[in-house]
Design a protein around this nucleic acid. Sequence first.
RNA 1: GGAGUGGGUCGGAGGAUCGCUGUGCGGCGACGCAUGGAGGAAAGUCCGAACUCCUACGGGCAGCAGGCUGGAUAACGUCCAGGCGCGGCGACGCGACGGAAAGUGCAACAGAAAGAUACCGCCUGAGGAGGUUUUCUUUUCUUCGGGUAAGGGUGAAAUGGUGCGGUAAGAGCGCACCGCAUCCCGCGCGAGCGGCGAUGGCAUGGCAAACCCCCUGCGGAGCAAGACCAAAUAGGGAGGCAGUGGAACCGCCCGUUUCCAGUGAAAGCCUCCGGGUAGGUUGCUCGAUCACCGCGGUAACGCGAGUGACAGACGAAUGAUCCUCACCGGCAACGGCACAGAAUUCGGCUUACAGACCUACUCCGCAC
RNA 2: CGGGCAGUAGCGCAGCCUGGUAGCGUACCUGAAUGGGGUUCAGGUGGUCGGGGGUUCAAAUCCCCCCUGCCCGA
Length: 128
Amino acid sequence: MENSLLTARGRRTLPKQTRLAKRADYLRTYESGRKYFSRFSVLFIADNQMTFSRLGITATKKAGKANIRNRLKRWTREVWRAHREPLALDLQRADFVVNIKPSAARASFTDFKSDLVALFRRAATSLQ
RNA sequence: GGAGUGGGUCGGAGGAUCGCUGUGCGGCGACGCAUGGAGGAAAGUCCGAACUCCUACGGGCAGCAGGCUGGAUAACGUCCAGGCGCGGCGACGCGACGGAAAGUGCAACAGAAAGAUACCGCCUGAGGAGGUUUUCUUUUCUUCGGGUAAGGGUGAAAUGGUGCGGUAAGAGCGCACCGCAUCCCGCGCGAGCGGCGAUGGCAUGGCAAACCCCCUGCGGAGCAAGACCAAAUAGGGAGGCAGUGGAACCGCCCGUUUCCAGUGAAAGCCUCCGGGUAGGUUGCUCGAUCACCGCGGUAACGCGAGUGACAGACGAAUGAUCCUCACCGGCAACGGCACAGAAUUCGGCUUACAGACCUACUCCGCAC
RNA sequence: CGGGCAGUAGCGCAGCCUGGUAGCGUACCUGAAUGGGGUUCAGGUGGUCGGGGGUUCAAAUCCCCCCUGCCCGA
């Protein structure tokens, strides 16, 4: 598994193992994690004792109807995929949970992307 | 040319790179290659089914739902055709459209009265009082009684309408026409329709989306249904081992945990079994399917053959960037491009929706 | 997937079942009382009854369809 992740890391892929899937994982991140805020989202980070970082996304019903929430989650995943390697987020070996705020429903992708990248960058630098 | 009505279709197109995901092939594997990957509403979850499990010997009551007629369908509260009523000049649209002489109930305010009725009025009988008068009489007021639903007035609603006759005054009391009900005749499978056919003078007004009555239908739960595999921990069952003293068993030693006692010590270890949680697999997508074609039917739809099409995820796949061409706004740079995202699967209904197109009609104006 | 509750005056709630007048508290306005304010007393203003249809003479109330918010079960 570790080999596969090492090869995948350079190719900006997004395999299933790097996603948070358990409710317990989310709760642990919320309880013990650090919090970072930005215009469109809230980021929780907690160490996971693994060899890579994982991503979880939450968009409540306040954000919009189903198609809006799906779009926001895809955008978040896309930003994570594109900037995981440049920002060396895997070296944190942590679980990242992004809570999307309702205000993001009206944003364009470019605005949302720049906001989220800045958030990741701030979190990454402060962790070092 | 303008205004409008019904039905139907589409819901940007093509390509490149990166990423996600189902399937197939190759590979121990990592992965590679090929190929597929949101909708007309996927939505709301309002009906109907399929499919699973539960309960079961059948049946009823209760409850809920539906309610003009005929047909379509696996079924339906859906669809088609038709009838009747209402709205619209019309094309057409809308309609929970069985029963009020089975029973119970309701109707504020107003009004005499809202099933059974006389307040005012009109007519009239008897008694009393008064006016007028020579007489015949005539008339006013009042008390008790009778007749009367024409008029007044109230109301959402007051017991067919108009006219003529008739009468003390009136009244379908009688007549004519219109309306209504029943019967008959004709047409229609039927709801119903037509009749200068007959009869009835019309007799019990409204509300059943008030209770209710009649007819028809319905067992309950839902893919987190259900099935299979199954960790850790705790607990359950079976077997074995260990285990203090005495008794018992045995000819004796060794040994045995069958019984009893005791609590100083220990009350544990091993193996197996079943239930079952996390988790995983399955159910899971090709089916009462859809399109084209032929035949039958006014139609919904049915039958038939061939070709083509058809997502299966599970913290839940469709995204990002770029190019070309459409469309809309703007002088331009540029911006925008609806409603909205599959969750077991179908048949409907309802709701949301930028814009574009096809088709059949209606009304008005102008020209021929 | 299935079930339930609520929406009425600026705010918090009755009224709905059993249809005809929308009421209570608070807030607001006016007046009284006080030297002034608060408390108190008297009077008053204020509501598309979430939206749209339907039944009815008449609908906040009965029926149907939507919208919004909240809750529950597997």
